[in-house]
Design a protein around this nucleic acid. Sequence first.
DNA 1: CAGTGGTCTAGACCACACT
DNA 2: GTGTGGTCTAGACCACTGC
Lengths: 276, 276
Amino acid sequence: MATSPDLSHEPTSADGPDALASAPGDGVAPGLAQGAPTFSPLYQQIKMLILRSLQAGEWKPGDTIPSEFDLAARFRVSQGTVRKAIDELATDNLLVRRQGKGTFVATHAEQHIQYRFLRLLPDTGDLDSQGPAERRIIECRRLRASAEVARQLALRSGDPILQVKRVLAFSGTPAILEDLWLPGGPFKGLTVETLSDDKGPMYALFETQFGVRMVRAVEKIKAVSADADAARLLDVPEGHPLLSVERLAYTYNDTPMELRRGLYRTDSRHYRNELS
Amino acid sequence: MATSPDLSHEPTSADGPDALASAPGDGVAPGLAQGAPTFSPLYQQIKMLILRSLQAGEWKPGDTIPSEFDLAARFRVSQGTVRKAIDELATDNLLVRRQGKGTFVATHAEQHIQYRFLRLLPDTGDLDSQGPAERRIIECRRLRASAEVARQLALRSGDPILQVKRVLAFSGTPAILEDLWLPGGPFKGLTVETLSDDKGPMYALFETQFGVRMVRAVEKIKAVSADADAARLLDVPEGHPLLSVERLAYTYNDTPMELRRGLYRTDSRHYRNELS
DNA sequence: CAGTGGTCTAGACCACACT
DNA sequence: GTGTGGTCTAGACCACTGC
């Protein structure tokens, strides 16, 4: 009797000689994970299981995950099937493959090039000349979600949230004024001190301190005029054109976890985007 | 004797019984395409060969290309290797796979959702309510490339170019003012009439009339104030904040083929971008 | 050297579209 | 049914990393 792929969450100890005895052509187990009539390829199911392990924190950002061969044995499928699942997770930027070393959980720390979600670049293209971003926290308040913020963060109006306001500068010149709204639950304990003491990207802090990993985001961009407040903090005349960048960032499972509204000075910088 | 993969450009007529006799484990032919010592996987070489056929116009936009099996026979490799090559070309948006039907050369025509490179969406998200874009050509002039335009289009200063200026409106309200610069050579014969008579996306026209297919683009976005000219054409007060979108679009082979500068009204629309 | 990811092959079968 | 892309397997070998 040919064994079916084992899609249980735990590694199995029943590694008998028939563990991998599935004959070629057994084909996919249709809808094995649930009774739904919808067809789902095996590698998609494996992908979901790996995703679940990532969510559950079985492997932390920066860790290496088990080898393809090990995962294949755990799930009772062929290495090629695991491979395809990992391939997709890698192109989604959730995993990083390194030949000869292993497959790692992606992280916003040691992204070694730059902040992964920041698209504002100097017009000269000279990424290094400007040095690191200087961060200044303006405020960090605990308050209740407005209807609008609640809607975007999938909360209820009045739920506790955190609001952070900060300015980023390069070489002493302010470039970005940002307001952030974070759900109070996952970010319980976040204080202005935590933020001020931090050195690296904020999303790296979120990973290490709160176990929240930002996976993807959607930005809505508009051109606006600087109001008095923005003009003061960004050191531009009132009415100066600014880029308004409203970002909704998601963790695993498409859960929105951060709403951010940035005002970017674009006199000597630009927002870069690639189309394909 | 085991035959090597045949990477010649033409289909071979020598379909003898040993055509596919390569034994497993023959491995990759290192640097077969050129004597370079750099290792290049077989599927990458196949990818390049398919790309070359696309460039050469062997298959036109909208056409179906030969089946994976046919291509495998042509190149004397396995279907899986062709598959991986096509996979990459599909994720690059150069080809489109359709199960049961075949693999097609991507096209800007019948992109049936919307203009693929236009990221300006109504704030309501209601894509259909606004109806189709109304296009008005302001001018179409033949002139000589300035140093700046020449640099970006990889031409020499003074080379002949075309400049097009147009306005796009939705429901009678102007939304976009665009200036385009095109190299004179590939677009010889482009007139204001050609442009005005056209119905679909401009990039579809470029494909059918000039055989130029835009494959990818890079945009630099800034916030600016409307000058008198822009204010008049976009029906906004002078000084109104506008999104400046400077696009450099490329054909196959990373050849720049269009420089475009758009001014977008963002009072009721926004530029949408996804990060990951 | 062993272990990891990366490539390649060959063959079987599934899902889908057309005829 | 036939032909297309899509999934899955099994096994071999290559390239890179680090012991």
